[in-house]
Design a binder for these strands. Sequence first.
DNA 1: TCACCTCTGACCATCTTTGACCTTATTGTA
DNA 2: TACAATAAGGTCAAAGATGGTCAGAGGTGA
Lengths: 161, 161
Amino acid sequence: MVRGDHVRSIAWQIEQYLKAMLERASNGVIEVQRSALSELFNCAPSQINYVLSTRFTLAHGYVVETRRGGGGYVRIVRINLSADERLRRFLKEILDEGINENEAQGFIEFLQEEGILTNRESNLLKNICSDRVLSRAVTNANELRSNILQSVLITILREDV
Amino acid sequence: MVRGDHVRSIAWQIEQYLKAMLERASNGVIEVQRSALSELFNCAPSQINYVLSTRFTLAHGYVVETRRGGGGYVRIVRINLSADERLRRFLKEILDEGINENEAQGFIEFLQEEGILTNRESNLLKNICSDRVLSRAVTNANELRSNILQSVLITILREDV
DNA sequence: TCACCTCTGACCATCTTTGACCTTATTGTA
DNA sequence: TACAATAAGGTCAAAGATGGTCAGAGGTGA
């Protein structure tokens, strides 16, 4: 019942598995088969979609491409921040429409993994952008999160130059 | 009261149990499951919440993070309140009332001068706490600033970061 | 008795997991 | 080529698994 020995969700395990695969992949791209993955983790195939849609979104720094039919696959691409045409699309998409807690967490983690934020900055921002902090005081928390992250990016980009 | 050996409440027992666990934990963090804990002590699950909200508050030097759903947990993080008496005082202060833009700027600068925040962290936070960022989305910006700075202090004082 | 803790149960919120049904691509065959 | 069979993957709503809230009942010391 205590500490690290409690069983995490299957979703979490699949997430870890895929991220480890990505880590090993030299080019930041992996391909898996949904059915094979779901068999490996002994779960429903749609569970894989759940994991993808909650943990491998654009905001988290991933693009997922799939193909149906024979020879079908799920391809997960780690976004490369230096490819700035993608970055612009990415920021626009994320920051224009507001961003929820989960997406913000993912985005901040992504910035950290890219070396743009330190671990401590990442922790600070994740807490600041949590519903626990924001939702108390505000109704449109998603919009506020966008404002905050935009100002963070502006500050950092300014510094980098 | 004089006697130390009268029958203690369940709440007290749970408190001791959790604190003993924290003592054993190397980094001041433990994770438990609410349902498992309540079964262990043979009480209602909400009893756990009672213990957490009366004995593991910020003022007591703890932060509680939880997650619902499958694989859910209750995580208790001890923060290092003894680290700095001034921070402690400030924390108490912002727990009560909101603070305006100027006060926030001043406090952030103070933290920077004390070596508690880096220059970059300070810049990030000053921007985030500005009315330019907050006021557009919110009416009670002062209260929100309090929340934000409070979470900043909590993050910094955590033993596991 | 009063004031203040403690404790519970009914009801709520959130995250996960599954299954039934749908869409699309490839392959084999007439 | 047309078509059927087969082999992927997609969607969505409902069920399952946790934890949260709150009002009120239950204890206990002063």
